[in-house]
Every structure is written in C-alpha cells, then in structure tokens.
C-alpha cells in the first residue's frame, strides 16, 4: 500500500556544515505520503538540524531536498517560505506558541501566511481545536495547561492541511504516559488529515508506536558537536 504512495520528502546527497564545525551528511532519505516515521537518536545528534533543513529553515551546502515535489534546495527566500506555509506543519518540544495570543489566534497564524481569508480563520481553527479537545478557543495559551498547549501546537501544525508534519522531540517534556498519549493523538490527527509525520525523539519507549523507525546514526553521518 505504502509503496504506491508518492514521496512527500526526499533527501539526496545532503551535506550541511556549520561554521563552528558540526557537519551532517545524509545520502538518502524518503518519507512517503501519509507515512509516519520515528527518527530516533540521542539528544544533540543532529535530528533537529535535519528537520530545519527539510523545512527550508537552514540552507544545505549541497544536495537535494524535495518537499511535496518541490525543490527546497533550489528555492530561495519567499518561495521557500511559501512552500513551507503550504506543505509543512511543525511541532516543537516547547511548543513555541505566541504568548498573549489566544488558542484560536495561535492556530490561525499559518492560515494568515497560507493566504486563507481572515473571515474563515475562526471557524477553521475552532473546529480543529474542538477536535483536539480545546473547548475554549478564546483562552490565552499562557493560561492553558502544558497538555492543552501541546494540543494547540498540534492544531497549529495541522491547520493549513500540510503534506507533512515535522515534530521535533514533542514528548521530551512529558512523562511516559502522557508522552504516549500525545504521540497517539498526533498520529491520529495526522492520519485523519492525510499528513505524513516525521517525529524525532531520543525516547526508545516511543519506538513501539511506529511501524517505521529510522535511527539517525544509520541515516546520517555527522562530525563535531551540534552546539
């Protein structure tokens, strides 16, 4: 079944070197449409760097990154931002929600940059927040519990119907039970919205939740410290 699907992320011959000496090389990596993959590896090994490269937030020195059929390596500036706005959702360990903004406003931001009419934002955001168990979309995010904040972050990553969600250590701050629940929810919602999921984690306990686990040290060659 999966083999019939198109790749949503393709990386070939990627090389990235930081000025301070850390380098990462990835000969090849493919993530298919709707596929859910755990990228496992210890903290500081370069997993986050890979996600930032894939999302076009860092410039590779060489190689090719195709995101939903579009070359991120060749795209520059606004074009790359547009591809990211349309195709990628991101979830972070510390959520990175906008403080002082409501849940609805946080979730609506990708719609703003994705060109959706402002009048439609509230309805779209509220529906997804309700699906994720946030009953009051007007609540300020800094007044929500950590679990609720994470669900708002998941909603924000999925609101623009991305082709792929990059989740960078989303469970690092959670206990094992809540970590399992959060991953289950993220996988479930990604599946519902037909978004592929590439989740990084240093927690071996999550491996059982994924049918495909890629070990970072088998995927990439690195040297130096991430810093």
């Amino acid at each position: 079944m999966i083999s019939d699907m198109q790749p949503v992320l393709e990386i070939r011959g990627l090389r990235f070197v930081r000025p301070e000496g850390f380098s990462i090389e990835i000969p090849e990596f493919t993530l298919l449409e709707g596929e859910q993959v755990l990228l496992a590896g210890p903290s500081g090994c370069g997993k986050s760097t890979l996600l930032l490269l894939a999302a076009g937030l860092l410039d590779a020195d060489s190689g090719e990154i195709q995101l939903a059929g579009k070359s991120m390596a060749n795209a520059r500036g606004g074009r790359r931002d547009a591809i990211r706005a349309d195709r990628v959702g991101m979830v972070f360990q510390t959520h990175h929600l906008l403080p002082g903004f409501t849940a609805r406003e946080n979730v609506s931001v990708p719609l703003l940059f994705g060109g959706v009419k402002p009048a439609e934002h509230a309805a779209i955001a509220d529906a997804l927040l309700a699906r994720l168990g946030i009953s009051d979309p007007t609540a300020r995010v800094d007044r929500l519990s950590v679990g609720q904040q994470q669900r708002v972050a998941i909603a924000r990553a999925l609101i623009a119907d991305p082709d792929v969600v990059f989740a960078d250590e989303p469970t690092a701050a959670l206990d094992p039970e809540n970590a399992a629940k959060a991953v289950a929810l993220l996988k479930e919602v990604c599946r519902e919205r037909n978004a592929a999921l590439l989740l990084t984690s240093h927690d071996p306990g999550l491996e059982s939740a994924f049918s495909r686990v890629v070990r970072f040290d088998e995927l990439a060659q690195t040297s130096g410290a991430v810093g």
């Binding site: 500036g77 931002d81 547009a82 990211r84 706005a85 991101m90 990175h96 990708p110 940059f113 924000r156």
Partner: peptide
C-alpha cells in the same frame, strides 16, 4: 527573536 523565528516557521516570509 523566538517569536519572529516561530512566525518564520509558520510560513511568514522575511519581507513580511
């Protein structure tokens, strides 16, 4: 800086 970085992640172009 963090807020700006988050906006960039969410698709906000530099010019915007």
């Amino acid at each position: 800086r963090r807020q700006i970085a988050v906006l960039r992640v969410l698709g906000c172009p530099q010019r915007r």
